[in-house]
Amino acid sequence: MARPVWSGVITFGLVTVPVQLFAAVQDHAVHFHQLQRGTGDRVRNRRVNERTGKRVDYDDIVKGYDAGDGRHVVVEQDELDGIAPGRSQVIEVRGFVELDEVEPAFFSGTYYLAPRSDEYGRVYRLLRTALAETGKAGVATFVMHGREYLVVLRAGDDVLELHTLHWADEIRDPRRDLPRLPGRERPGSKELDSARQLIDAMTTRWRPEDFEDTYEKKVRQLVEAKRDGEETARAEEPPEATNVVDLEDALRRSVERAGSRREPARTSGAPSRSGSGSGPRSGSPDGARLLSDLSKRDLYERAADEDVQGRSRMNRQQLIRALSDRHRTRTAS
């Protein structure tokens, strides 16, 4: 069972929802201890006084801001807690925006929100459903572990999600900060057409479970091989950069290779991935109920079958509405 990392309330307007915050991800990385080469002895990090070299207890450590010339401004933790006592318990929604307005560079971390107890489930469900049906995200701020965060709240399938964001002044300007970027002249039309064809040929559905962290897998294999006294093979070197002269040929061959790997198109009589034709569809009397029983992944696949535009940005409720509207339009025509 996950443990909460923060507890407080969400406020929007005059409505308050007591909630708990949970990490949405868990680390799967291989972790190593630090050892002294040749001895195998553990290496430990200790807090020591820089001047005396003596160990310092954790309770005797305070924060110090470097004021220059070797001087520090000492700040106690209770002083930091005292400047925002109420805000450390409140996720204050300032407004609502379209989620796709938030540039990906701003996103930092993801958390789940749950009602603090069953009695708050109704208000929690109201906020989640309203966000799902409007397609909006709440922009909010709150304080956690001594830091203030800018966040967005959005509706997941059955849960409220909280995404921490970077502040605007933390986002670097690539034109100013990167050493080089190409100019804005438009590529040649033939090369651009080939690049578009390659993107079309490689377009697929978003299935995160189809991907794995191959580096961590190889790290584990390395550890196991060394433990068993086996030899390990080095990875292949990265491919060389594409020569500008060969660019068009490389694009053409890439399109051909990607096209040969695509799954054959489904014939008109083939069954849908979302289920056989025996069950009620969205247009039958039980259609709405059936759609509401499907997972978001199944709804997305059905939306792909129906060529619903903008489906990649839709949440579960929006997919249900779009599929229902598509069937009503088709029936009316």
Rank of each mutant, 00 (worst) to 15 (best):
S272T: 10
E256A: 05
A270K: 02
P239K: 07
S276M: 10
S272R: 09
G269L: 09
E237T: 05
R252P: 04
E224G: 04
L290I: 12
S282N: 08
E263M: 02
P280V: 05
R262V: 01
P280D: 12
G269Q: 10
P264M: 05
A288D: 09
V244I: 14
K226F: 04
R273A: 14
S268L: 08
S254F: 05
S268N: 03
V223L: 15
L247V: 00
R281G: 15
A235D: 05
R262Y: 00
A258W: 01
P264T: 02
A270W: 00
S278F: 12
E240L: 11
E231G: 00
E230K: 05
V255G: 03
E237L: 13
R273G: 10
L291G: 05
R281D: 15
E240F: 08
A241L: 13
V223M: 12
S272I: 08
A250N: 08
R273D: 12
E236F: 06
L251I: 06
G275T: 09
L247D: 03
D286K: 15
S282K: 05
A235I: 01
T242W: 06
S272A: 13
D249M: 06
S274F: 11
A241S: 10
A233R: 10
A258Q: 00
V245W: 03
G283C: 07
E256N: 04
V223E: 14
R257E: 03
L294S: 06
E240Q: 13
P239S: 03
G269C: 04
D246F: 07
P238F: 13
S272W: 05
R281I: 10
R289A: 15
D286L: 15
R234D: 11
R289T: 14
V223A: 15
R253D: 11
G275V: 06
S284T: 15
A265E: 08
L294N: 00
S278I: 12
R262G: 02
E263T: 06
P264I: 00
D286N: 09
T232H: 04
L222T: 15
R257T: 02
D228A: 11
S292V: 08
E237H: 06
E237A: 13
L291S: 02
A241V: 14
T232N: 06
E248Q: 15
T232F: 04
E236M: 07
G279T: 15
R227D: 09
L251Y: 02
P280N: 06
L290F: 14
L247W: 02
S284L: 06
E240H: 06
E236D: 13
K296M: 12
G275L: 07
Q221S: 14
D293F: 13
S278K: 12
G287W: 09
D249K: 13
A288Y: 11
D246A: 07
E231K: 00
R253Q: 13
S272L: 10
D228K: 07
E256R: 05
R289L: 13
D293P: 05
P285K: 14
A270Y: 03
P285N: 13
G283N: 11
L222W: 13
R220C: 09
S254D: 05
V255I: 04
P238W: 09
E231C: 02
G259L: 03
D249W: 01
G259Q: 00
S292C: 01
D293A: 14
